[in-house]
């Protein structure tokens, strides 16, 4: 079955049990609480949210780097939650990850060519073919081939992120999950990496799940964007639609809070009061009601349904 949807996530939950110190009561942190989404082949789906909203946990669940508490994840129609370890190992070549920290995600004792070659070894590729593939990948990500014998510490942050991207691309995956891939980089380098990711997608037709806290970056790179808050999806829509017609009060506040590098962009500011509540004791009803400027009695009690308002525009809010 040729599915339009490469990834279908339904009711995904991840609860962590946390002990609050010696002899104290354990509590449950609901890091991801009932998230459903689909990713279409060839698109970029962005997930954005502030610290602790569960965006990175969602990415790790989809990679099965963490096991979900509940919910299903279908990748090309198959439930990846049911795969055994050995099957997972075989199938992981189809979905790969790019990590945030280019300093921590590369083995300092391996040469660049070894790092990029490693995934190719797992599928038993011939030596000659491997060497050719490594050269091709280095060229794709813009690292001169003469650098292949160098170690990670000899590269700058941006170059290391390129190496991490080459490694993720090595097995020609169908889906790439990028967790804050540019957060650690300076703006001039960040733009280089964003352009690289977009060029590679154009050339090879990858599907991206792009996770980040920076709404301007997510919006720029993504076709559709999902906004998370305290473990739940608040709003999901096409990127331009979300920017032009944000419906959820949280999305509106988030958009108005981004400092824009344009002194003539006088916009209406919605400054949220208060802080993000702790995910181990999230508010009842709508999780945003404690900071929401338009919250009503109903919001305190009932969890709003994540429903489609317009074509492809989903929002979880009673007041919309």
């Amino acid at each position: 079955m040729a599915t339009e949807e490469i990834l279908k996530v339904e009711g995904l939950k991840k609860y962590f049990e946390v002990s609050n110190g010696f002899l104290r009561k354990k509590s449950i942190v609901k890091a991801v609480d009932d998230v459903s989404l689909t990713v279409k082949r060839g698109e970029t789906l962005g997930i954005v949210g502030e610290s602790g909203c569960g965006k990175s946990t969602t990415g790790r669940l989809l990679m099965r780097l963490l096991d979900a508490t509940e919910g299903t994840v279908h990748f090309e129609g198959e439930n990846i939650m049911e795969w055994s370890r050995s099957e997972l190992k075989k199938r992981r070549r189809d979905f790969q990850m790019i990590f945030q920290d280019p300093f921590a995600s590369l083995n300092p004792r391996m040469k660049v060519e070894e790092i990029i070659e490693e995934p190719l070894l797992t599928i038993g590729m011939e030596k000659k073919e491997r060497k050719e593939r490594v050269s091709q990948l280095l060229q794709d990500v813009g690292i001169p081939e003469s650098y292949k014998g160098r170690f990670p510490h000899e590269f700058s942050g941006g170059q290391r992120q390129r190496i991490g991207i080459a490694r993720a691309l090595a097995l020609k995956p169908k889906l790439i999950i990028a967790d804050e891939p540019v957060a650690a980089l300076d703006v001039s380098i960040q733009a280089q990496i964003i352009n690289l990711l977009m060029d590679l997608q154009k050339e090879y037709g990858f599907t991206y799940l792009f996770i980040a806290h920076d709404l301007s970056v997510v919006q720029y790179i993504s076709d559709r964007v999902g906004v998370m808050y305290l473990g739940q999806m608040m709003e999901l829509a096409e990127s331009d639609e979300l920017y032009e017609h944000p419906l959820h009060p949280y999305t509106q506040a988030l958009l108005s809070a981004i400092p824009v590098p344009d002194i003539h962009a006088k916009k209406e500011k919605i400054t949220l009061t208060g802080e993000v509540p702790s995910p181990d004791n999230p508010p009842s009803g709508c999780r945003f009601h404690t900071r929401c400027p338009i919250a009503t009695e109903r919001c305190k009690q009932e969890v709003p349904e994540f429903r489609e308002i317009k074509n492809g525009h989903y929002v979880a809010c009673h007041e919309v």
Partner: peptide, 8 residues
């Protein structure tokens, strides 16, 4: 180098 909200 900075992506601006709403720009493509």
């Amino acid at each position: 180098s900075v992506p601006r909200p709403g720009s493509r």
